[in-house]
Amino acid sequence: MMRLPNFRFVAPTSVHEAAELLTSSSGDAMLVAGGTDLLPNMKRRQQTPGTLVGLRHIAELRAISNGDGLTIGAGLTLADLVRTQKVRESYGALWQAAAQVATPQLRNMGTLGGNLCLDTRCNYYDQNYEWRKAIDFCMKKDGGTCWVAPSSTKCLAVSSTDTAPALLALGASITLVSANGSRRIALSDLYRNDGIHYLTRQPNEILTAVHLPESTGWRSAYWKLRRRGAFDFPVLSAAAAAKIAGDGTVESARIVLGAVSSRPIEVAPAASLLVGHALTDEAIARAADAAAQPSRPMDNTDFTLVWRKRMTRVFVTYALRELRGDDVRDLRRRVSRQELL
């Protein structure tokens, strides 16, 4: 049986207390919410924090508030997020993304904040200590080489969060709290294209809430590529959102790619091609071609990189067709193994 390394556990009951604990622990502490990402990593000795700060007892992290848009506590479980009617009705991409994370049990445990801060993933990194030792480790942990591309000076581990591409398409921002105060930033600014330093979050900061803008007139969709209908992380995802006028003209749009880089990629040039046009097959094809340009999958996940690259265009097309209002139930059944309606 794989065992956790030793650690000290603290369970603060307020964000303030948690922030104080992080600050006082001199960088040796990590936050644990659902534990579904961190604990496997700890068992594989990818991370060995001396202190775990449990966030489960902080009620304010689970709050949902309506107002101008929607604010979601980062500690809400993905299952609770999926059960939230407002998310289902108004933020379809987020709902579809959350509903496809891992498995029902893991969604009962994992939180929105945890999914946004998910460690980047790589076939050379997400391995037991003994396995990593057999390749003399890698740049991301204990080694010097990025085996995905040995000449790379940068770690190429893959951003594998489902909810981030969806939330980026929805124009989300987040609140980060530390003992020194709080700051609200665009979610896009949370991410860096670096497999090791993939978050701009400071070690003493806690992601407390996600803010979604008013959604009137917007539609959104999330398509996830993975081998199986459950368990698997995305190896490509496409999130799209568009504000569509009564006559079908796109007024505003965002297209975001997930799992083809160390951060989710918003493809603004592709989205801008849609603005002022109806979502015709031609418009969708133009945008999908443009969206696929920055897709740079590497050979460190399931499926071959060439095929994943080629699927980028296809998955953006699926998302845009869904925005158009196409009946995608059969396609969903075949590709996502569920209808997600």
Binding site: D126, Q127, W131, I135, D136, R228, G229, F231, D232
Partner: peptide, 29 residues
């Protein structure tokens, strides 16, 4: 299995000895 570039490493390792990456069909598949 994965063979690392021989000029850099002699490693030959199971590509993914885990239940996550060794794909056993789920109920949905």
């Amino acid at each position: 299995f994965r063979r690392l570039p021989p000029r850099l490493s002699g490693a030959l390792v199971h590509k993914f000895p885990s239940m996550l990456e060794y794909k056993s069909p789920t109920t949905l598949d």
